[in-house]
Simulated scan of single mutants.
Amino acid sequence: MSTATLADREVETRPAVPAIAVAAEKLSVQFGEGDRATLALSEVDLTIRQGDFVSLIGPSGCGKTTLLRAIADLVQPSSGLLRVNGMTPEAARLARAYGYVFQAPALLPWRTVAQNIMLPLEIMGLRPERRRAEAAHYIELMGLRDFARKFPWQLSGGMQQRVSIARALSFKPSLLLMDEPFGALDEITRDGLNLHMRELWTRTGLTGVFVTHSIPEAVFLSTHIVVMSARPGRIVEVILSDLPRQRSLEDRDTPAFLSVARRVREALHLGYGHVP
């Protein structure tokens, strides 16, 4: 006979709370000193749990990219605390805990798609057969099967960003940081990549932090939208999206989608004035 108490059984059946992927407390970042000092972020408090897809949205210069770069250990905080998967950003970088996708694809023009994707794996010292296997997996995942032997200059901007995302995922990070990777693309290409990113997040379960200036993109992609104020960047509101996990472009015309978008727009208005 089991000796477990009712309280024990309640604990066993209670849903597990996801671990924290990113935790910021009173995080501030200042560039320069004295009269030339610029306060980019001011006392940011933010918690991102594993499995979340979080978009950072706000006016240009509000510190969205600075926050992303601080998480990636590319910018040093001036004050406050920041942890990535329970580690300092430096320790997370050394542990290869995250992948980073820049605004521009930053592919090596003399390497093929497959060779660009394998670059981090070469740096890590993986055997050639393992590198090829991992590259093949992400080539398939990102819909690049017919382009594996192409060079970057033979690809469209959207296809180049797919390669950049595949490269960032090649070493299986649990956290993917993306700095407005679709901002320079045309609307049709951007819509296609938004769909692909949703599918990728659903299939892999990774945690995403995504910088964007687009309200529809933020709402479509995210579980949470972090609205930031004009510089110095502060968090105005974190908006939970209760849209279905499975989404299509047609969902952007639904009352539920428009309701979340309206909340984001109102929060942006609070942060820096009228949004057209």
Rank of each mutant, 00 (worst) to 15 (best):
A4P: 00
D8C: 12
P18G: 07
A19I: 00
A21E: 06
S28C: 07
V29A: 10
G32Y: 03
E33W: 12
G34K: 06
T47D: 11
I48K: 03
Q50V: 12
G51S: 02
D52I: 04
F53T: 07
G58V: 08
S60M: 09
C62Q: 03
T66N: 13
L67D: 02
R69M: 14
A70K: 03
V75M: 06
V84R: 05
V84M: 03
T88E: 06
Y100L: 15
V101I: 10
Q115G: 07
Q115K: 14
N116S: 09
M118Q: 15
L119K: 10
L119P: 11
G125I: 06
L126Q: 09
R131G: 02
A133G: 02
A133D: 04
E140F: 01
G143T: 01
L144N: 08
S156I: 10
S164M: 02
A168M: 11
L169Q: 00
L175D: 01
L176E: 03
L177F: 07
M178A: 08
D179S: 01
E180V: 07
P181S: 12
G183Y: 03
E187K: 14
D191P: 00
D191N: 14
L195R: 07
L195H: 07
H196E: 15
E199R: 15
E199V: 12
L200A: 11
L206M: 15
S214Y: 08
V219G: 00
F220K: 01
V227H: 05
R231F: 02
P232G: 07
V238W: 06
V238S: 05
V238L: 09
I239H: 09
I239E: 10
S241H: 08
R247Q: 13
R247S: 12
D251E: 05
T254F: 10
P255V: 05
F257V: 09
S259I: 02
V260P: 02
V260T: 11
R263K: 15
R263I: 11
V264E: 04
R265Y: 02
R265Q: 09
L268W: 11
L268E: 13
H269M: 13
H269E: 15
